[in-house]
Structure formats: structure tokens, C-alpha cells
Design a protein around this nucleic acid. Structure first.
Length: 606
RNA sequence: GGGGCCGUAGCUCAAUUGGUUAGAGUACCGGACUGUCGAUCCGGGGGUUGCGGGUUCAAGUCCCGUCGGCCUCGCCA
């Protein structure tokens, strides 16, 4: 070892010991006769001192040290003089008086300093990710990620789950997300697909008798990115045989509690609450509500349908709804400009044609449109909204789906802006009874809401023939702080029922056989009832880290255009490689200017 | 595919109505200094204002295009 301790280890108890430390030069303070270096590694920082009186040669060379140089120092642990301790450092009571130093590696002037006061833009951070990852904040996230992964493995191990790896090179299946494809050299014109999830493999593992499976699995989806979505991401993938929905809930409740215990040292009250899809859509307008605060959506359609306000009236007449939020004590918190521009534009992004608002004052409604509601209607609205003087009432009058999306977005923004919750808190709950199918008007057919292997609620079998839209799926989401944090279902284990669902989805027996024949075959050979779930691991790390983008908890994330700014991936490849893969590039697509090799990436000092 | 924000020194930012030689802090280089810890003080170098067009007597500023980053709608079974 090149060191005896780390830069986070030394305390007063080490006084007088000879130690050797290695690390990066974090800060240097040169006083000519004495030089202080803050030496940093991932465990902490230690002040090391070069004194002219101690070793003049070393002291002189120490004056040449700069940010991010890597050095090894040997010396004695000394107490700092009275009043010179640094309470900001865990090692702040001591310093190391250096007798000997080796510059292990001189650093070029870094484009930014890992301990800088201001964070450079993300483009630069991603280009020099090795510097970004030296930042204590990101090191904390990587540690958190490791601790959570370990907690997950320990938990499942205790419960007799087996971690089983499934292939990365698989077969492309229809529906779902766009696949990342890998061309085959051996099979001309054929492609593997990287897994969107290990869904089919884990079901087959159930058939194979591995009744408790989990995997921390990498998944790939070639879809557009978001703050909480990366093209490659990590799922905690779980599947169990001989279980019902409640068994899954119990196991996953325990997992979430274990994670909270591990990283927060808190006991999460169990079981986690459960809400139906209908409930949360009515009350929060989304299937992934942020339950850290109230601010429920209230429907006043029946009250205002007969009012003199055309917008409300027509919305209801056309089969839509008039729904709104009662924002407590906020009557004076938003200027007319904010209401008529910012908030109206916000709901407009979700298709809402407008935003109506009232203030509650003197037990009545106040606003430019209050006159269209008579006294009785005003009282009914206030009562239904549970409004009081000083409250602000906001309404979207539109089709059901539009009012859901618009009010959900509005509710999230108000919750955040008005600080209606503790941003560090974790609030998880189950959402159950999703519809099995959604009608696809473009294709004129039913689409699976979850996936085509999802079983249905027993008593809804009656709707299979008549009213498929009413069928509830035995599927469930775990939502946390407004994110979809997990999603799963009880699967179909009967090939005949599976075929019925394929019929509904307009997947012919021939197509089904061609695409998922291996699964249908497997289901014929003694498939146990089974079900499972997958948790978005990156999102959970993000939630526990208290940050709002997934890139900050992934060591080497990709940009919104799915590029890696550090390596320059994706890149063009050698024509020989393409020939071997039997691939010809369309000349128009081969234009330069797309993501390129790392050589074109801007480097410091030219 | 659509909407929005952004791009000026290595970095973080400023630059009046379109107006003179594009500034500051920090980093970097040189010098001073034996108790600092965002060290301090003195001096210095550093600019294709992302890129390409256009308007104008004059463009960092206005217009068009393009590249890149972020947020978002669609998309993500």
C-alpha cells in the first residue's frame, strides 16, 4: 500500500504517529515559509503542512503543487495550535507535518475544480466526468447507490430469492418501447435486441421452478429522454411463483422499508397505503400522484352546469368536467399576471383551453367571472371545495383526460412553489386496479396498458366479450413523491387465456406464435401462477439522494440525445466492421456532425 | 416530431437603445509573505462572443439557418 491511512481517518487519537497519506491537492495555501495543502480522497480531507524548518527541499517543491496533483506524503500527526482547529473538517483538529513527499502524478490545469464554489454547466461536467465524480456530492450519491444495492441483495437473500442473470442479447418483441438493436455477424440481416426488461425470461424462470427470483438488471429503451429517464437504466427485477397480489405487496413493502432503514435509519410504517387507479385519477389527475401533500382535485361539474358561464356550461354539456383546486390562503399569493400567463400557460401545455379562478372573500366568490354564478351556486361551490375566506380556487373546464393532466401539473407546481411538503421526505403508496386496456383510436384497436401478459381481476372476466374497457388488470404501480417507482402485475399462466388476450389486442395466433412462441410453449408445460414487479433503481437512488435528475446518481450517464460526451459514443465505425455485419449506411445518414469520436471533444487548453 | 430556456476568457457571470479598445471574480503565470483553511497583497498573460449566413455606417446585442446542453409535450407495453 502506498498509504497507511486515508484522508478521512486521522483524529487527535493519532497524535505523534508517523503516517503516509495519498490524495489529490484540493487547495494550497503558500505562505513562503510554510505551505498548507488540503489533501483530498473520497474519505475526506486532511491538512498537511510543509515547514521550511522541517525539510527545506521538500518545502520548496511543495510550493509548486497545484490543484488536482496526486501526491504521497509521509509525516507526523500533530495537533493544531490553540484556536487553529478547523471545525469544517472531520480531521480538523490535527494536521500532518510532512517529512517526505512524492508527486505521484502532476495534473494538467483542470477545466473546473471538483470542490469549486460554483458548479460548471452539465455539458462540461459530463465531458470531464472523472473530475465531476471527484466532487463530494457525486461521491455521496455513488456510495448511496452502493448501499441501496447491497441492502436489496441482503434483503432478498434473507428471503430465499435467487439472483439470476438473463441475457443482454435477446430477441426483439413487438410492442413496448423501441429496441436497441445489435446486428449479428453470423446471421446475415438478423439482429439481437437489448432487453427493455427481463420480463419474458423471468416468467420462464418461474415455469422452470425458480419460484423466487430477483436481479439488479440493466435495461435499454430507445425512447426520448427526460430528467428521470435514461436510455440504459437499472431495475430491481422481481418475480415470484405461487403468489397473489398481496404477497407481492408484502415483499416489496418490506424491501422499501429496508431501504429506508438502511439509508435513513428510519422505520417506515407498513403496509404502504393502497389506492385504486380511479381514486387517484379523480383526486390527483395522475396515476403517479405526489402524496407528500394534499391539495385534492374537486369536481364541481354538477353545480356549474346550469350557471351562466358558457365555458363551464359547454364543457359539461360536451361530456367534459369542471374540476379545480382549493389553494388554502393563497388568494393574494398570485398576481393576475401569474394567473393569466404563467399558470394558464402551464395548463395550456396539457391541452386546457383556459384557467378560471376565484378568490373566496366574505363567504362569496370574487373574480371577473363570479357574476355568472348565482348566490346558491357560489355557496355550493365554496362548500364542495371546502373553501374559506382567503382561499384561491382554480378551475379547468375540459375533457376528462385534459382536466386530469392539466390539474395534475398545476397541483405539482403549487405544491412545490408553496412548499406544501418537506422535499426530503419519502412518501410511497400503491396504485392498483389499472385498466387492462386502452383504446387506440388511430389503430382502431385495444392496446395493453401494462403488457400483454398481465392477468385480469377475476370478477372482470365477464367483460372480456362485452366491454373490454371495463376490465381491470391485476397490475400495480408503486408511486413515490410523484414518480412511478415500481410497476408490476400478476401474470397470465394459462396459455388459453393468454390467447384470448392476444385476440383482444388483435395479435393473431400466428403472430403470437412467431413473436412469443417460446413463452406460450413454456406456459403449456406446467406454469405455476406467478407475478412480479420491477423497481426503477436509479429513481429510488435519486429519491433518497434528494435530487431531481437521474444523471446525478449514475456514474456515466448519457445526454438527452443519448450521447456520451466523455467517450463520444455513439460513433461511426470502420467500414470493415460494417461489412462483417452486412450493413450498408444510407449515404444521407452518414453526414458528419453527428456524435463523433472523443478526439473532437473539447479538451482543456486546446 | 412539437414547445421553451441557454451558449461571451479555462470556469462562473456582466456588457445600457445596436455604438468607442468586450469587463469582473476565480483559475493560470511571475513576485512578496511562517498559522492558513474560499489565505492575503502586487504584477501579468488570456476572447473565432458555439458555428454559418444576413440586415446595418456599426452586431455579443436584431433576423435566418445550424450544432450542442437542459426542461417539457408526444413517446416510454
Amino acid at each position: 500500500m502506498l498509504r497507511t491511512q486515508t484522508c478521512g481517518d486521522l483524529r487527535k487519537s493519532h497524535l505523534g504517529e508517523a503516517v503516509t497519506l495519498c490524495g489529490w491537492v484540493d487547495k494550497y495555501r503558500d505562505h513562503a515559509g510554510i505551505v498548507f495543502i488540503d489533501l483530498r480522497d473520497r474519505y475526506g480531507k486532511t491538512q498537511v503542512k510543509f515547514d521550511l524548518a522541517e525539510n527545506s527541499d521538500i518545502q520548496k517543491s511543495a510550493r509548486g503543487l497545484r490543484h488536482e496533483d496526486v501526491i504521497q506524503v509521509t509525516g507526523k500527526v500533530c495537533a493544531r495550535p490553540d484556536g487553529q482547529a478547523n471545525p469544517k473538517l472531520a480531521t480538523g483538529e490535527i494536521e500532518v507535518l510532512v517529512r517526505d513527499m512524492v508527486v505521484l502524478n502532476k495534473s494538467a490545469t483542470p477545466p473546473f475544480e471538483p470542490d469549486g464554489q460554483t458548479l460548471p454547466n452539465e455539458e462540461l461536467r459530463l465531458t470531464h466526468r472523472y473530475l465531476d465524480l471527484r466532487r463530494p456530492a457525486l461521491q455521496k450519491h455513488m456510495l448511496l447507490r452502493h448501499q441501496l444495492a447491497k441492502a436489496v441483495r441482503d434483503y432478498f437473500d434473507r428471503l430465499d430469492f435467487l439472483e439470476i442473470e438473463t441475457p443482454m442479447l435477446g430477441r426483439s418483441t413487438p410492442e413496448g418501447a423501441r429496441d436497441y438493436l445489435v446486428p449479428s455477424r453470423v446471421h446475415e440481416g438478423a439482429f439481437y435486441a437489448l432487453p427493455q426488461s427481463p420480463q419474458l425470461y423471468k416468467q420462464i424462470l418461474m415455469v422452470a421452478g425458480y419460484d423466487r427470483y430477483y436481479q439488479i438488471a440493466r435495461c435499454f429503451r430507445d425512447e426520448d429522454l427526460r430528467a428521470d429517464r435514461q436510455p440504459e437504466f437499472t431495475q430491481i427485477d422481481v418475480e415470484m411463483a405461487f403468489v397473489e397480489r398481496d404477497d407481492i405487496f408484502r415483499i416489496i413493502d418490506g424491501l422499501v422499508a429496508e431501504m429506508v432503514r438502511t439509508v435513513r435509519n428510519e422505520e417506515l410504517p407498513l403496509p404502504l397505503p393502497r389506492y385504486t387507479y380511479q381514486e387517484v385519477m379523480e383526486t390527483y389527475g395522475t396515476d403517479k400522484p405526489d402524496l407528500r401533500f394534499g391539495l385534492p382535485i374537486v369536481d364541481v361539474s354538477e353545480i356549474v352546469r346550469d350557471s351562466g358561464f358558457g365555458v363551464f356550461k359547454q364543457a359539461v354539456e360536451q361530456g367534459g368536467r369542471v374540476r379545480g383546486l382549493c389553494v388554502k390562503g393563497a388568494a393574494e399569493k398570485f398576481s393576475r399576471r401569474i394567473l393569466d400567463n404563467d399558470l394558464k400557460n402551464l395548463v395550456g401545455e396539457y391541452g386546457a383551453k383556459g384557467l378560471a379562478y376565484f378568490k373566496v372573500a366574505g363567504g362569496k366568490l370574487e373574480s371577473s367571472i363570479a357574476k355568472f354564478l348565482n348566490d346558491e351556486q357560489q355557496q355550493a361551490v365554496i362548500a364542495k371545495m371546502q373553501g374559506e375566506d382567503g382561499d384561491l380556487l382554480l378551475y379547468v373546464a375540459d375533457a376528462w383526460k385534459v382536466s386530469c393532466a392539466a390539474l395534475a401539473a398545476l397541483r405539482n407546481r403549487l405544491g412545490r412553489e408553496l412548499e406544501l411538503y418537506d422535499p426530503a421526505s419519502i412518501n410511497a403508496a400503491w396504485v392498483v386496479d389499472f385498466p387492462l386496456l386502452t383504446w387506440n383510436p388511430e389503430e382502431n384497436r385495444w392496446d395493453a396498458e401494462h403488457h400483454p401478459f398481465c392477468s385480469i381481476v377475476d370478477e372482470d372476466v365477464q367483460h372480456l366479450a362485452g366491454d373490454p374497457g371495463k376490465i381491470r388488470a391485476q397490475s400495480y404501480d408503486l408511486v413515490c413523491n410523484g414518480y412511478e417507482a415500481a410497476s408490476g402485475s400478476i401474470r397470465i399462466h394459462d396459455s388459453a387465456i393468454q390467447q384470448q388476450i392476444f385476440d383482444l389486442l388483435n395479435i393473431s395466433p400466428e403472430t403470437a406464435q412467431a413473436k412469443f412462441g417460446f413463452l406460450l410453449d413454456a406456459l403449456k408445460y406446467g406454469a405455476p401462477p406467478h407475478g412480479g414487479i420491477a423497481l426503477g433503481f436509479d429513481r429510488w437512488v435519486m429519491l433518497f439522494a434528494g435530487c431531481d435528475n437521474i444523471r446525478d446518481v449514475i456514474a456515466f450517464p448519457k445526454t438527452q440525445r443519448a450521447g456520451d460526451l466523455m467517450t463520444g459514443a455513439p460513433s461511426q465505425v470502420d467500414s470493415r466492421q460494417l461489412r462483417e455485419l452486412h450493413i450498408k449506411i444510407d449515404a444521407a445518414a452518414a453526414q458528419p456532425g453527428k456524435p463523433e469520436s472523443a478526439e473532437t471533444v473539447k479538451t482543456p487548453n486546446g
